[in-house]
Design a protein around this nucleic acid. Structure first.
Lengths: 251, 251
DNA sequence: CGGTGGATTGAGCACACTCAAGCATTGTGG
DNA sequence: CCACAATGCTTGAGTGTGCTCAATCCACCG
């Protein structure tokens, strides 16, 4: 079964979905090989974007979701009053534009933070597949649930956390996500500027800078420009989960 | 077609889904009457909850989504360090627990803010329906997208808005949502405590109180306890969308 | 009547913002 | 190759918004 697919992809000079290593993001666990082939013809794999290039733009007609293969992407929305707000960062293996599924327009813009490679998953044709492959529907519902939960956690954590807690949380989140994709969870390069981080976390750039040097002085992290080494994950976790007040939680 | 359904609901002393007035929330525009009947047997309508009662609890096995028919519900999560965070308020016609679809457990708890009536939509059996009725799947994807966007707007607005802006935004949001359901958009009762509002908006109760009296002095709203009258919607809108800095938005 | 939970108001303080200056890095053109 | 610009990052000083702590008020209810 794999052979046929592999042969096909060889002729088209593309990597097959099941060779991708990220297939668990796009596909449910078990997919019939025949269906897999049909899916592959739908997915537009390995598109390249340069730093600063837009993957899609807010208010453009919604067409596809994208999975980051390599590089990194930020999403942002422009509010009525022209303010720009970074709503998320997407690392390899993460799907972008789930917030726009089955809406008419993209609800945010996505921009490559460095040279990046993305797989486009057209969702008009995907809808047909979803109906035929029950697992796919479940899978996408799950991805969207996770997206909601992520967004809620964001709201939750940032609404009541201090600058130090926010940044500790942020670094740990990156760490976990890099680690999940078999990259180092303690040494990585931040693909985004301090400005992006500040914007995303609702802080001033200066505060981000100050906090990062503070964390460094506490020997919790080490920075060399954008290169980041977590030297004390437990320490960071303590800061991130700071117990402000052991509140009684009735209910 | 309506007759048969109506007859059925008469005998069971329940209102039919298509009589509900909220059916646009639960159902796609056009549903085959036969399918509608099957759906109705799945939906557990009109469950009553007293103030303070839990509709479902975080970490319980996920079973159903709920649509608020009457009353109001708040959702909250308890973080690792025991902090309670209100993640949303749900008014008549709004669906709760979309963030938990196709996850194993509820990711938050839901509590009635006053005596409320909710329709339970079991999602195990619903999955079957979704496959048979194409519109249903689309509909649910859409609801989830909206939920993500709502959550993102929350993050966005609250991360960089002042206390005044947050509360103006909050009041206008309630206004719109009441108005959408053919209730007064300018006169309503807040179903939640100041504490809940504060928690949800990431403020201290004292700040909420102070800001509300300030808005009242500016003749924008009128309060009598929980009863609220918006006297100057434009004024509120100006505050809510305060132009901090007309930022250049490249991209 | 006292008791309880919710709401308001006041005083003082602290965390993060603003403004401002300087440093570091990268890229571009002469 | 260096000068220069542009952008990103860091550091400092002063200020203000919203928090904390505390007291009071209010409505509802046993």
């Amino acid at each position: 079964m794999e052979e046929t697919i592999f042969a096909k992809t060889q002729t088209t000079f593309r990597t097959s979905c099941d060779q991708c290593g990220l297939s668990s993001v796009c596909l449910p666990i078990a997919v019939d090989p025949e269906d897999l082939y049909r899916l592959e013809t739908a997915v537009n794999r390995g598109q390249k974007f340069n730093r600063g290039e837009l993957v899609f733009k807010q208010r453009d007609r919604f067409k596809s979701c994208f999975v980051v293969q390599g590089g990194a992407v930020k999403t942002f929305i422009v509010t009525e009053d022209g303010e720009k707000q970074v709503t998320g960062f997407y690392l390899p293996g993460e799907m972008v534009a789930l917030d726009s599924i089955n809406t008419d327009y993209y609800s945010c813009s996505a921009e490559a933070l460095e040279r990046s490679s993305l797989c486009e998953i057209p969702l008009d044709r995907f809808a047909e597949h979803t109906l035929r492959i029950p697992g796919l529907q479940h899978h996408f519902f799950q991805l969207m649930s996770q997206e909601i939960q992520k967004s809620q956690r964001m709201t939750v954590l940032l609404n009541r956390k201090t600058a130090d807690e926010r940044l500790a949380t942020f670094l740990l989140s990156l760490s976990k996500r890099f680690g999940r994709r078999h990259m180092s969870a303690t040494q990585f390069r931040l693909p985004m500027t301090r400005n992006d981080i500040a914007n995303h976390l609702g802080l001033a750039v200066e505060t981000v800078s100050r906090v990062l040097t503070r964390l460094q002085k506490q020997k919790l992290v080490q920075f060399q420009g954008r290169y980041c080494t977590l030297t004390d994950v437990n320490g960071l976790t303590n800061i991130a989960h700071a117990v402000n007040s052991p509140y009684e939680c009735r209910g």
